[in-house]
Simulated assay, not measured.
Amino acid sequence: MIGRLIKYGVMFVVLVLMQVLVLNQVQLSGYINPFIYVLFIMLLPVSTPRYLLLILGFLIGFVVDIFSNSLGIHAAATVFIAFVRPFVISSISTREEDRNEYPGLRQNKFSWFLSYTAIMVLLHHFVLFYLEYFTFSHFFLTFLRVLLSSVFSIFIIVLSQFIIFRE
Rank of each mutant, 00 (worst) to 15 (best):
residue 34 P to K: 02
residue 58 F to T: 09
residue 81 I to V: 15
residue 77 A to G: 09
residue 33 N to P: 01
residue 93 S to G: 00
residue 51 Y to D: 12
residue 12 F to G: 06
residue 89 I to A: 05
residue 32 I to S: 10
residue 41 I to R: 08
residue 52 L to V: 14
residue 61 G to M: 06
residue 27 Q to M: 12
residue 36 I to S: 08
residue 17 L to V: 14
residue 28 L to R: 07
residue 32 I to M: 07
residue 75 A to G: 03
residue 48 T to F: 07
residue 13 V to D: 03
residue 31 Y to A: 14
residue 24 N to A: 05
residue 83 F to G: 06
residue 75 A to N: 10
residue 95 R to L: 07
residue 21 L to H: 08
residue 54 L to A: 11
residue 18 M to W: 09
residue 33 N to A: 13
residue 66 I to C: 07
residue 80 F to R: 01
residue 40 F to M: 10
residue 23 L to Y: 11
residue 77 A to E: 03
residue 63 V to F: 09
residue 44 L to E: 01
residue 91 S to Y: 09
residue 90 S to V: 02
residue 53 L to G: 02
residue 42 M to L: 14
residue 9 G to I: 05
residue 92 I to G: 02
residue 9 G to D: 11
residue 42 M to N: 06
residue 10 V to T: 12
residue 31 Y to C: 09
residue 10 V to K: 11
residue 18 M to R: 03
residue 47 S to P: 08
residue 86 P to L: 03
residue 51 Y to F: 13
residue 19 Q to G: 07
residue 29 S to F: 14
residue 87 F to H: 05
residue 47 S to I: 13
residue 58 F to Y: 13
residue 58 F to Q: 03
residue 68 S to Y: 07
residue 37 Y to R: 08
residue 33 N to T: 15
residue 60 I to G: 08
residue 87 F to G: 00
residue 19 Q to K: 01
residue 40 F to Y: 15
residue 89 I to W: 08
residue 65 D to I: 07
residue 24 N to E: 13
residue 81 I to T: 01
residue 11 M to Q: 12
residue 54 L to N: 00
residue 58 F to W: 12
residue 54 L to I: 10
residue 86 P to G: 04
residue 68 S to H: 09
residue 37 Y to Q: 09
residue 12 F to R: 03
residue 31 Y to D: 08
residue 50 R to P: 00
residue 41 I to T: 12
residue 68 S to E: 06
residue 22 V to Q: 01
residue 7 K to E: 10
residue 34 P to C: 05
residue 16 V to Q: 02
residue 95 R to N: 11
residue 24 N to G: 05
residue 86 P to R: 08
residue 68 S to R: 09
residue 11 M to V: 06
residue 19 Q to C: 10
residue 16 V to Y: 02
residue 8 Y to T: 11
residue 73 I to A: 02
residue 29 S to W: 14
residue 14 V to R: 01
residue 26 V to I: 15
residue 50 R to T: 09
residue 32 I to T: 06
residue 57 G to K: 06
residue 12 F to S: 06
residue 29 S to N: 13
residue 80 F to D: 04
residue 8 Y to E: 04
residue 30 G to I: 13
residue 42 M to K: 10
residue 12 F to C: 04
residue 15 L to W: 07
residue 34 P to Y: 02
residue 89 I to K: 00
residue 48 T to Y: 05
residue 33 N to C: 08
residue 35 F to K: 07
residue 66 I to Q: 00
residue 80 F to S: 00
residue 77 A to M: 03
residue 37 Y to L: 12
residue 22 V to S: 08
residue 89 I to M: 02
residue 33 N to L: 15
residue 42 M to P: 04
residue 54 L to W: 12
residue 20 V to L: 02
residue 34 P to M: 00
residue 75 A to Q: 02
residue 16 V to G: 06
residue 29 S to Y: 14
residue 22 V to D: 01
residue 78 T to W: 01
residue 92 I to S: 03
residue 36 I to W: 10
residue 23 L to F: 15
residue 94 T to D: 11
residue 84 V to W: 07
residue 39 L to S: 12
residue 58 F to R: 00
residue 8 Y to G: 11
residue 85 R to T: 05
